[in-house]
Amino acid sequence: MTNTEKMPPVGWCLCLERGHNVGVKPVVELKNLSKTIGKKKIIDNLNLSLYPGQITGFLGPNGAGKTTTIRMMVGLMRPSEGDVLIEGKSLKDDFEGSISKVGVIVENPEMYKFMSGYKNLLHFARMHDGVTKARIDEVIAQVGMQNRIHEKVSTYSLGMRQRLGLAQALLHRPKFLILDEPTNGLDPAGIREFRMYLRSIAENEGVSVFVSSHMLSEIELMCDRIAIIQNGKLIDVEETADTEKSHYYIEALPASAVENILVAEGFEVELFNDGFIIEAEKEQIPGLIKKLATEGILLFAVNPHRKTLEDQFLEITGGGQIAEAHTK
């Protein structure tokens, strides 16, 4: 792993709309965004701001409304209520003005397979103002496709199609890049390349990136900030913070005695597998081990524990939908 790549967070603090965004104008604002299809409210009153230079992950279980939200943000679907503001321009009232700042990759980038990659780019370039031939060549070089750009898209591998998809999204130098399941079908090397590329354009060009995915580990590696949606409602916006508290996993017997000691020592205890998880500073651990040992506890393991995004995600969304369905 290179230095430019963000290390995976060791946990993240829960805080809505963190303070350091104050004063920075959001690139995108979702305002009371709702979508009703038939009688069902697919998206319920979504409010979210996205900031320049930041990669925001968009997480949610299947059917939570991720794709619908994204479709509304790019003008493919019409919101039933609310609006999307892009650089302050309303998607509803000034479609052309607002969407001209957006680059989109919706699911697998579907290109015109019967045309060459170059013609595809030319096609999309013509739909934006001020994209010159030179700019097309520049983008082609950026995604490293010079050698095969004049071949038909039908001959491209999935990875190449993804890169072409990225190229078409970047043609018009968007201020906001929106990606729906961008790494679907990419191999690990492709995913990593893609991730690093996104980071570099976010950091160097101040682009605000919004990525939806099921792949939690992926989001965890890529994003500065995570929005979680469930049943059409935004249930959490969190920063993958740099100053996390450390957690430790303790496996010891007898369980009840261990729990009593931990609580008595002032730790918050959480059951996990066959043991407990506590939030503790590194310096506290030797003392704690000594304490447990003197109390005659059988100590099997004390490990630093990293809560993965998956754990937290399941925690927040309440876990299995199958289990949920059974209880209904």
Partner: peptide, 14 residues
């Protein structure tokens, strides 16, 4: 049917 409609309609063109 090609799915390209998504690319076509998310452009600054009415």
């Amino acid at each position: 049917s090609q799915g390209t409609i998504k690319m076509l309609l998310s452009r600054p063109v009415k």
